[in-house]
C-alpha cells in the first residue's frame, strides 16, 4: 500500500524544506514583523506604511511560558482516541520581538521544559485521516 501523502495542515504559513520555518511579513517602513501573514498593510498605527516583504521568521527562540493540556479540546481539533495530553509553548523570538505559540514535539517530556529553554522549529504530524497525514510546526528543545 502506498504511503499517504504528507501535507501541511494549513497552506502558506510555514515551509518544510530545506529547514522548516514560519513564513511572516516584515514592514519595510517600520521593521515590524507579522505572523500569520494575514495583514494587507502595516498595523503599527505610527508607521506611515511601507513595502511588505515575505520573510522566514527565526527558527529558534526561548520559551516564554508553557502548559500541558490534559483534556481533549473541542472540534475542530482532531484528538487521537484515546486522547493523549499535549504541551503548548509560547516562544519568544529575539529578532522579531514577538511570541509565537506551538505544540511541543510529542516525545518531549513536559518536565524537561522551563521558561527560558531554547527551542527550535520542527515539523510534526498533527493528525491523519484516510487521505493524508497533516503536518504542523512544533517547538522542540535545542539538543544540548
Amino acid at each position: 500500500m502506498a504511503e499517504k501523502p504528507k501535507v501541511p495542515v494549513i497552506e502558506g504559513w510555514f515551509t518544510l524544506e530545506p529547514q522548516p520555518s514560519l513564513i511572516g511579513l516584515r514592514c519595510g517602513g517600520c521593521g515590524s514583523y507579522f505572523f500569520p501573514k494575514t495583514q494587507a498593510s502595516c498595523i503599527n498605527p505610527t508607521c506611515g506604511g511601507g513595502e511588505f516583504e515575505e520573510v522566514e521568521l527565526s527558527r529558534t527562540g526561548r520559551i516564554w511560558s508553557y502548559t500541558q493540556n490534559c483534556y481533549s479540546p473541542p472540534a475542530p481539533y482532531v484528538s487521537p482516541d484515546p486522547f493523549v495530553p499535549y504541551t503548548v509553548a509560547a516562544v519568544e523570538l529575539e529578532r522579531e520581538k514577538m511570541v509565537v505559540l506551538g505544540q511541543v514535539s510529542p516525545d518531549v517530556d513536559v518536565e524537561a521544559l522551563e521558561v527560558g529553554t531554547e527551542v527550535e522549529l520542527t515539523i510534526g504530524t498533527l493528525y491523519e485521516d484516510e487521505q493524508s497525514e497533516y503536518l504542523m510546526w512544533n517547538w522542540r528543545p535545542v539538543a544540548a
Binding site: G31, S32, F34, N44, K97, M98, V100
Partner: peptide
C-alpha cells in the same frame, strides 16, 4: 491569537 504583535519596529 497564535502570535503577539512584534515590537521590532517600535
Amino acid at each position: 491569537y497564535l502570535a503577539t504583535d512584534s515590537a521590532a519596529g517600535t
